[in-house]
């Protein structure tokens, strides 16, 4: 008898939690299609490079960013103008739901840049720039720029957006990422453009 009750309670609990989970997922999807898609595009494929693609982005990274917008730690101009307000009312559960929703979408296909730029970018991306102390991007962002966990996917992103972010790390407007500030410290604008173009094209 005891085991039956225990089983029944277990079943109810399990049913309850999957229902709650389903509801969270539904809620996240509704938020994504109803609100976020106006800028980040349907399924996280945006049009203007002002708005980053979110499709296929790492779930952990999205969570960290929404958290950083909410706490105002990520404070570059567009983060303030757009995402501080947007993130301010998101609960931890909706952040998790949104992160999982976008991580599960099919990533955008990267655009190929012009040849010399791509060649220079490939070198920086895969080998770094030893003379300037710039590490290989691939060591953290992955061979195909797919990212992992807290390391964001760069593949398929708008190159213009990546350039703007790298400039932000360099100038200190996106000041909550000491690792990246270190990476870009000595990079020239051309090197930034090359690395971003290559990473985006993966």
């Amino acid at each position: 008898m005891k085991t039956i009750i225990a089983l029944a309670v277990g079943a109810v609990l399990a049913a309850g939690s999957t229902a709650a989970l389903a509801q969270d997922q539904e809620g996240a999807k509704a938020l994504a299609t109803g609100v976020c898609s106006a800028c980040h595009g349907p399924q996280g494929h945006s049009i203007s490079p002002v708005f980053p693609n979110l499709a296929g982005q790492q779930s952990a990274y999205i969570t960290l960013q929404l958290d950083a917008f909410r706490s105002h730690e990520r404070g570059d101009p567009n983060a303030r103008a757009y995402m501080w307000g947007m993130a301010s009312q998101l609960s931890d559960t909706s952040i998790k739901g949104l992160a999982d929703y976008y991580a599960a979408q099919k990533p955008a296909v990267g655009e190929i840049g012009d040849k010399p730029l791509m060649a220079e970018g490939q070198k920086i991306y895969t080998q770094g720039i030893a003379a300037q102390g710039v590490p290989a991007c691939a060591s953290c962002h992955g061979k195909d720029a797919e990212g992992a966990g807290a390391f964001p996917r760069l593949a398929g992103q708008h190159a213009d957006y990546l350039v703007a972010q790298l400039q932000g790390f360099q100038s200190g407007t996106r000041a909550n990422a000491p690792i990246m500030a270190n990476v870009v410290r000595s990079m020239s604008p051309e090197q930034i453009k090359a690395a971003a173009t290559y990473a985006a094209s993966r």
Partner: peptide, 8 residues
């Protein structure tokens, strides 16, 4: 209401 700057 939205938390967006005017430029949004």
């Amino acid at each position: 209401q939205t938390g967006f700057a005017c430029e949004a």
